[in-house]
Design a protein around this nucleic acid. Sequence first.
DNA 1: TTGATTTATTGGAACGTTCCATTTATAGAG
DNA 2: CTCTATAAATGGAACGTTCCAATAAATCAA
Lengths: 347, 347
Amino acid sequence: MASRAKATILDIAREAGVSKSTVSLVLQGSGLIRPETAVKVRKAIEDVGYVYNRGAANLRKAHSNVIGMVINDLTNPFFAELAVGMERVFQAAGVVPFIANTAENPVRQEEVLKSMMEQGVAGLIVSPARGTTPGAFRRIEAAGVPVVFAMRRLPESRIPAIAPDNRRGACLATEHLIRKGHSRLAFFGGSSDLVVYQERLGGFLGACEAFAIPVADRMIVEGETSRKGGMACLETALAMPEPPTAALCFNDAVAFGVILALRKRGLEAGADFAVVGFDDVAEAEHYSPALTSVAVDTAGLGERAAHVMLKMIQSRTTRAEDHIGAVSLVVRESSGPDRNSQVGDAA
Amino acid sequence: MASRAKATILDIAREAGVSKSTVSLVLQGSGLIRPETAVKVRKAIEDVGYVYNRGAANLRKAHSNVIGMVINDLTNPFFAELAVGMERVFQAAGVVPFIANTAENPVRQEEVLKSMMEQGVAGLIVSPARGTTPGAFRRIEAAGVPVVFAMRRLPESRIPAIAPDNRRGACLATEHLIRKGHSRLAFFGGSSDLVVYQERLGGFLGACEAFAIPVADRMIVEGETSRKGGMACLETALAMPEPPTAALCFNDAVAFGVILALRKRGLEAGADFAVVGFDDVAEAEHYSPALTSVAVDTAGLGERAAHVMLKMIQSRTTRAEDHIGAVSLVVRESSGPDRNSQVGDAA
DNA sequence: TTGATTTATTGGAACGTTCCATTTATAGAG
DNA sequence: CTCTATAAATGGAACGTTCCAATAAATCAA
């Protein structure tokens, strides 16, 4: 049934009674061919069941139309949203994004990046896996392929990054808790090998400083960035002699875990302990209690990253500005009773 | 800094003082070359900053090492898990899976499939978008590229599908509700244009039949397969003159919505109304109340799909058996008080 | 030594496109 | 009717690999 050998441009040419060059022109939508010829050729293309061989084409052409998206954890809905935002932009530009998952594993990431390079991608959007070594992108940069970091960045890299204003988000959230009257605060989850962590923790500490919360009343509990991690954090915190009464969590997953752990102890987030998350994933709004969280406009960041990428490809550069996305605090139930809740609006 | 023109196999050959053929052999790890020569060549590869051009290679070689995964909704953690399962298998086989999202849009799906074909994928694993036309895969089959459906299938297609035993899962769940003493049952969410829906609904109705639940006491409410859809379903159901007391939901998202809607009305899932979900996503276990759900071993199905794909590629066929994955009911709190809950174990 | 055998290496012809430089056909001007 | 300008179509040389057939070098049997 299937013609064994796959049809090429020459088969089309034969079928349509024209030259391969003409077929190529038609394929590229050149205005140079006579409309009737084009029709004839297109018919032949249909008839022989032709599929364009982009590999062969790229051998001659400068750039391919695929860009790679390398993501550290596809299971996190947060990254899926990021991907969705990018796809919108790329689709409009006729670029196809191929996504690959590194499962937070630098070795796997290396393989995936290699594969994408071999495939001849025009650019790479990466949310680097934890523990990525500084040199991981050296070869790629050297090859002149543009790279953009999304959501995460590497400590000393010159690669442009698109990320939310983590510091300000954490600051906003912490202020909110302090204004609610809390004076013993915790920062739950995450680990210090991530730049994002440094930034969010920095915002937390900055706000504490600004409101003169004594160091002894700031509690920092590192932990997995998952529900499980959040549960563990809460346990650790409540075991202290003077436990905190409110927590800013590294991300929403951690916050959900904290809420769960509270309920297990017969406590209610919002009433007995204030919880604020980070990222404002879709679920936050529907959780019970609804989660107060820092919204980062994930899809928007994805779009931004895609735009930057397209610009870089177009201007064949490997450099671009960082981009810090605006954040906002979405106040819901988990951070306490709904008494005319005011969002901090510092400069 | 970057040598402008990218290095080729010939540059390596020149650098190492051998022929391009030798370099090619080294690249393929052939045992024919003298070890010392291989070392010399590898050094040269490193020195010139070579990146392998798979496109060029595929021009000569039979097939590529990339297989495409086309998924209808990457935002659903369920599919992300599926992807993760596949990746495990493919990685071991030296195959790189590229993922693309169709956002449940058949037009987008068409584009994505075309792109993947052009890229020369060795095979395609697809969870087809709702509304995919029967002919969508004709060209792909004709080209001899193996396709496997995962989780979803098309009504009359001959393409092998890997999916859970939806009918049995729904049956098990319904039995469980009936054994709990419910006699007015609902099936919430989903829409009849999906084969999965037909199967799950079929299981529900089959169990009703088996236990002689009168038709008047079976309520079917179609709806979006999301939290929102679930909330709407519950509202519709409770507005009836003789509302049901238990519901099997099309999937977990719908079930979460139902639980939320119950709480809004001051009712508690498990106590006032029994809720069972489908898929048993990670969140089900942690929800409050914990969700009774039909576990489908998503990652396992992903692995299975990947294995089938590899087999098909290896034996260069485009046909394979369907594969129905085992399911099991995980009884938790949302389906009612914990009185020695027994899982139906029909033949 | 000579020829046969094995081991390493190599040139050259594909593979399916694009694109440049031509050729051929068509039309317009004189 | 010839000449030139324009429009449409074409052949051939890349592009970076693989792989076959062939060569060159080393080893061995006689």
